[in-house]
Design a protein around this nucleic acid. Sequence first.
DNA 1: GGTAACATGTAAGCGGTTACATGATTAG
DNA 2: CTAATCATGTAACCGCTTACATGTTACC
Lengths: 182, 182
Amino acid sequence: MTGMASASLSPPDYVVLGMVGLGRRSGYEIKQAVELSIRFFWTISPAQIYPSLTRLERAGLLTGRDEPQGRRQRRLYELTAAGSTALAEWLQSTEPIPFELRDIGMVKLFFADAVAPSQAARLLTAVRQRSEQRLATLRAIRPEAEAAERQGDVYPALTLELGIAFHQAMVDACERFESRLP
Amino acid sequence: MTGMASASLSPPDYVVLGMVGLGRRSGYEIKQAVELSIRFFWTISPAQIYPSLTRLERAGLLTGRDEPQGRRQRRLYELTAAGSTALAEWLQSTEPIPFELRDIGMVKLFFADAVAPSQAARLLTAVRQRSEQRLATLRAIRPEAEAAERQGDVYPALTLELGIAFHQAMVDACERFESRLP
DNA sequence: GGTAACATGTAAGCGGTTACATGATTAG
DNA sequence: CTAATCATGTAACCGCTTACATGTTACC
């Protein structure tokens, strides 16, 4: 019995669903949560979040309640049983997970032979520094992930470590090549 | 004196330009070259390539010449001096390179606490295996990259090693967590 | 004789980004 | 008093993917 209402949701819908699943939230808070956690492998804009919330509520996967702060409007959402089921089904589906990155930095590096060696080396350095910056940002988030871990959500910490490992590998590989060039 | 014709090209345009820069090519060959090299951090479809080639030729950055094989049509392109300059300028530009990934696998993993531990572990395994497969594919490409290296294009080999390092880091991190769970 | 690969394109639709619009509250 | 943050949305545009259309050559 696979959810009767669901007209197959898009990935952004599941991101919204998943974030609400981690705790009662407003659209604004969802955006913030994404920025603080999965923004290194996913982004979402307010123009996606608010229509998505409306759709998900109409589909019976979320329930929203107005809880203004003073005169400032605010609407908080939580998962319904159907929403929880839909999220779980998505996470459990056995379809192969496509892997697709889209990074202009790597593309530039690939074509770097088209410019002078010194210029190419500068590009390599820029790519390395970019990963070093991400690394610093990701490490700064660790406390939040560890706090979530203590409350039973261990996978955010795992994905954080995965991100750190990824960028560390990039930095190491760049350094190996940089030391070989000059 | 920054190229007078260029109305600022899109990333896919530069991908086409860069691929033609690596050797005289048809649209079909560009697609193949992308699949064999940068597809792990960029993709491009025929529906983008052919209009792009037309635009770039009109802008004077490429020249095309019909070279049919028998009755089978074919049009080969090469860089003009202006095209070469445009590519070099793009590669040398000092604007910060945005870093943005988009990977549903990571998103699923992030939310994995929403399902039973055994299901979450299955997800982790799926993500690990996905990287193992990429790793195998990337390693299979090594000969091509090394051939290019011998002919003076060293950066394709570099980006390949970067991709391998990235996926190896993912596999290692996944294994660390998998051994901790059961 | 049929399938896969070679080769080039067009059209429609959709999903996402950018920009815009509005208003309340807090901090400096 | 001003800027930043909180908070929610809409509209237009654009670029990309999907599907389609067409024809040739090589291979089994």
